[in-house]
Computed example of a mutant assay.
Amino acid sequence: MTTLPRSYWCHRDFDGPGRGRLELQSMTTPYPGRAVTWMRESVRDALTGLDRPTFGIAWAWLGNHQASGAAIRELRQGRPYTFTLPAPDGHWTWSAHPVSVLPVIETCANAPSSRQQLVPAHANGDPP
């Protein structure tokens, strides 16, 4: 039995008013360390828009390097990792989930260029 390679899907979500105006952020990576790094960078990018108490919670999480290592271990063991940040008008959530991904071929340009394979049988006069 063939197993699909494991990757990590990361995303940022906001639950509260104005949710529809926020730009969706997500990415996929084959490395659990890169997934946690993306989460940390995304939290760091959000710092400027946070109030003082929420900023303090985010800053404490960013400074906890042992928690980063624990997050990477959780992901390697196949468990998701989530960081939730309460805000006065809702809450932010950063998540990384282990996922299986299908291998993707590079481009169609590398495929054989025989156009006859793409034409239905009845299009060139042959019976369907």
Rank of each mutant, 00 (worst) to 15 (best):
G63C: 04
S95P: 00
G20C: 12
R79H: 09
L118W: 03
T107A: 08
E41D: 12
D45T: 12
L24W: 12
T48M: 09
P17W: 06
C108K: 12
S7W: 05
W9S: 12
L47T: 05
A71N: 07
S42R: 14
V36E: 10
S114Y: 02
S114V: 03
E74T: 10
L47R: 13
D89G: 10
N64I: 06
W92A: 01
L47H: 09
A35I: 07
G63V: 02
W92Y: 09
V104I: 09
T3Y: 04
Q77S: 14
G33R: 14
A71I: 02
F14G: 10
G69P: 00
Q77D: 15
H122P: 07
S113T: 02
Q117C: 01
A121V: 13
A35T: 03
M27K: 11
G69L: 06
Q117R: 13
I57H: 04
R73G: 10
A35P: 04
A60D: 15
G78K: 03
R44T: 09
A111R: 13
I72Q: 12
Q117E: 11
M1K: 14
P88I: 00
A58T: 00
N110Q: 09
S7C: 15
G125R: 03
A58S: 11
T48V: 09
A60T: 10
W59G: 04
A46T: 15
Q66E: 15
W94N: 00
G16I: 05
C10M: 12
N124H: 08
G125L: 08
A123W: 07
R12P: 02
L102Q: 15
D15C: 05
G16Q: 04
A121D: 07
G49W: 12
H11M: 15
A96D: 05
R21T: 12
V101N: 02
P112A: 09
H11T: 15
G78M: 06
T48C: 11
M27W: 03
T28Y: 06
E41G: 05
Q116N: 08
A87Y: 01
E23V: 12
